[in-house]
Write a protein that binds this DNA or RNA. Structure first.
Lengths: 207, 207, 207, 207
DNA sequence: CATGAATGAGATTTCATTCAT
DNA sequence: TATGAATGAAATCTCATTCAT
């Protein structure tokens, strides 16, 4: 179907991406074959290779596009929230809600597999590290700074470290869930973790 | 009657296992070939297949043997420690020390890759979940209970959740290090995390 | 009634043919893709397939059309030449001049590749052999016969063999140039070759 | 069959090389598939890839090994020949004899295809040009110089050009044979060519 | 026991060709 | 007519595993 709208192409591309995600979720990146992806997307090998020049590029595009979206979503939601406490709560609540998404456990596996995969590739690693520092951590650090400015939080915090720990906890809890599939533990850990964090943020540290 | 001593066999087996670990660390499990492992171990294909009936079995044996060792080591060290606080400190200090090991970052990648890999295999997953609950979490829960019994810690703690969070943090911090290789952040996060945990364990929660 | 003029169609067809020649010159027939040709001609796949029903037909048409032209050109020029010696000189001079054409070395590669390609295809081979015997060799043989009739050349010549050798030399010299790109050698060889031939044609062979 | 003699390996390698040559002779390099070669050699894909790391490397090795042999053979035969005239005669006679070899016409196609193929690859081309200049042409030039020293040939010859023309003729004649398969013409052309050359070498050039 | 040559299923990728628009 | 998205057969190459020596 030649001379086709950009929209049409974007849609087909998205179909492929989604099929690929399902495959990677099920079997992992290396064990998913292009044939699996082709079959799942109901298209053809040629089509997939028209949109992505290799299996690796498909993987890379898929993962990078997904992560760009998340922070976009957060920033949007945050328009209506005005205290740092609310914002942090919002993030925790996002992760609580995630549980309801179909296939969330499998998606987490893809996420972690990707981190390890990227960490072994000089270029991807650089991108991921940059993103982690300048986007992911900075995002939370900003909120904490806002909280300090607002008087919500203890002004003596090592905000960088706290942000890093914040994500470390979320990742750690998610990783446990990716493995065990234990929803109660995931929920409880998030709740407990939130409390622990809030306590830390709001208490005066006596050095 | 064996032609060679059991010792000799164990040694060769260990050589293979160690070479495999180095390969997996470098390239990941799927991308490491038996030829890579054979070359690194200076042996032969046949030999490797004498000790392990498949690449997967080699992986499984390698990873399971390694994790058994860790808790054994902890329990040994704990003989001489008598307060829960000291024991927890010991664990944190173990992770601080790990940084000094050659190739620790790569090893962490293998560790996380393995978790994801195992989580996709019914049998392995079952083992891992069991181990996680009955050994890994229980290990920390025990210490916390000891601390409560000793009066070191707040008696109203949800010990199970705290134990889960404890490991979630360690894993989350390690995962960040596996990706970034940022040693300072790893160290700081562990320290901050320890403080955060201790504060939580020792403070009376109101409600 | 055609919607576009025959002229227009011929022009577009020629554009495709020329682009194809450039591609084949650069990469060879098998390694040039239809996409390469399409891109170079600034048209589209469909258009190319409207003019040529397959890549092979495009190749065949291209090569056959080109070789038809050459002899036509020679015969035209020969209108004004009246001795066999002049005519042979003219041919040698044509090959000397060829060197000045842009991309001549690459074109020669296409030429030789085509000979080998055609030689492997029963039908094409038949055509080529016919052409070689009835057109190419005969063309030179005719000139030599003319020279004998004129008294320019030795009447005892094996004219068929001499014609074959004539082309063998031209091809051999061209092949060397196709490989080496050594213009001096090409020029010198042609000159020397011309002398050698003339000597042979004009000398009384003692048996 | 592990731990096998170098001889055994060389033999297997040779089997593959010969099968490949037959395939290339039949269909050409690009159109011959590894499956064709595997089938003809009665082995397996893995085996072929154990000996040659790619189809191209197989081609390259095959062609380079063959051409090394030829000059070796000539130099050996020349031990017993003491005049330049005899040596040149020997070369012509070699090409006359070649006709008797099974599949010689097809082999010639492979030879010419290879020249064109190599000429499109910077590295191969360099090698071929070097070989052509320093081995192939030099070989004949040496003989001619010997003939001049012996008083067999005219001392005023442009030996370099003559050598180049010598091979140009042989190649040109062979190319015609590769295409037409006309054995009589091939033989006659060689004979005539030899005469023409000898006349040129032994005559005093006036000017 | 150790070796490593051999196997071949199966992976990724290419590209000539078709055909709906 | 012209377009170029879609197709899928077929190519190259990899690599876990086997087994004769």
């Amino acid at each position: 179907m030649p001379k086709v709208s950009a929209d049409y192409k974007a849609k087909r591309r998205q179909e492929v991406i989604e099929s690929a995600l399902l495959c990677f979720a099920e079997k992992g990146f290396e064990s998913s074959t292009m044939d699996d992806i082709v079959e799942r997307s109901g298209t053809s090998k040629g089509l997939v290779y028209n949109y992505f020049k290799s299996k690796e590029e498909l993987y890379t595009s898929l993962m990078e596009e997904r992560s760009s979206k998340m922070f976009f979503t957060f920033r949007e939601k945050f328009q209506q929230l005005h205290t740092a406490t609310e914002k942090l709560k919002e993030i925790f609540s996002y992760y609580q809600e995630a549980l309801k998404k179909e296939g969330y456990q499998d998606y987490l596996k893809v996420h972690f597999e990707w981190i390890i995969y990227a960490s072994r590739n000089v270029k991807l690693k650089q991108k991921m590290v940059d993103r982690f520092e300048k986007e992911v951590c900075a995002f939370v650090e900003e909120i904490i700074n806002e909280g300090i400015a607002n008087g919500e939080f203890n002004p003596n915090l090592a905000t960088g470290s706290v942000a890093a720990i914040f994500w470390a906890k979320v990742d750690g809890i998610s990783l446990a869930y990716a493995l065990t599939g234990n929803q109660d533990q995931y929920r409880d850990s998030l709740i407990e973790s939130e409390k622990m964090l809030m306590k830390y943020l709001t208490t005066q540290l006596n050095k």
